[in-house]
Design a protein around this nucleic acid. Structure first.
Length: 189
DNA sequence: ACGAGGATGCTCT
DNA sequence: GAGCATCCTCGTC
């Protein structure tokens, strides 16, 4: 089979969340929403390990909000943050085990004018989890959809050779703050 | 560049 | 009723 085929993405997502998360960096996330195509390269993610992770929305099991985290790998978990913003995760591993990767930031690759319009500004288009969903047109309606299918699609890609992967503690969490489960692409120097 | 503070609504206890 | 997996604006340096 051809390198970079969608099935490679499916195989990747079925792995352990701590292995999957850094390997999502450099992949492309493309949306076709409201008649507009937009695309970013993923540049910042965080791993959340469900029942083993006090910072995870699924630490205490299934609730009304987190149901899609228990879906098959590739399922999108979209939730509202601070009453204002949408944030999205990609479910990983095995169906029924609520492990997921929070998508925290990306670099615009296509449809930038659309993203600028959605964001209402020219800078800081997708460098934050709420900004990323807004730029790509993602909202709660897409909770439970699959990135193997759409309208949000995960596509193959590679980080620039100029970049390296950094692991740091996760942002904005108040529990398990010692775990370096945030992964970012940073410029090599 | 960086930090403080407010907006805002939903979920779960 | 508390607590958020955040973003923006406006201050200061």
């Amino acid at each position: 089979m051809t390198a970079g085929a969608p099935s490679d993405v499916a195989a990747l997502l079925s792995g352990p969340v701590l292995e999957v998360a850094p390997r999502l960096l450099g992949l492309r996330l493309r949306t076709a929403i409201g008649g507009e195509a937009t695309e970013v390269m993923l540049a910042e993610v965080e791993a959340y390990a469900g029942e083993h992770d006090p910072a995870s929305h699924a630490f205490r099991g299934r609730t009304r909000r987190n149901g899609s985290m228990f879906g098959p790998p590739g399922t999108l978990y979209v939730y509202r943050s601070y009453g204002l913003h949408w944030c999205m995760n990609i479910v990983t591993g095995v169906e029924g085990v609520p492990h997921a990767v929070l998508l925290r930031g990306g670099v615009p690759l296509d449809g930038e004018p659309t993203m600028v319009t959605r964001r209402g500004r020219r800078d800081h288009i997708a460098d934050g989890p709420g900004k990323l969903t807004q730029a790509l047109g993602v909202s709660g309606e897409l909770d439970g959809s699959s990135v193997l299918d759409g309208p949000v699609v995960l596509l193959p890609g590679e980080p620039s050779p100029e970049t390296t992967i950094l692991a740091t503690p996760r942002i904005g969490v108040t529990k398990a703050t010692d775990r370096p489960w945030r992964f970012v692409l940073a410029q090599r120097h």
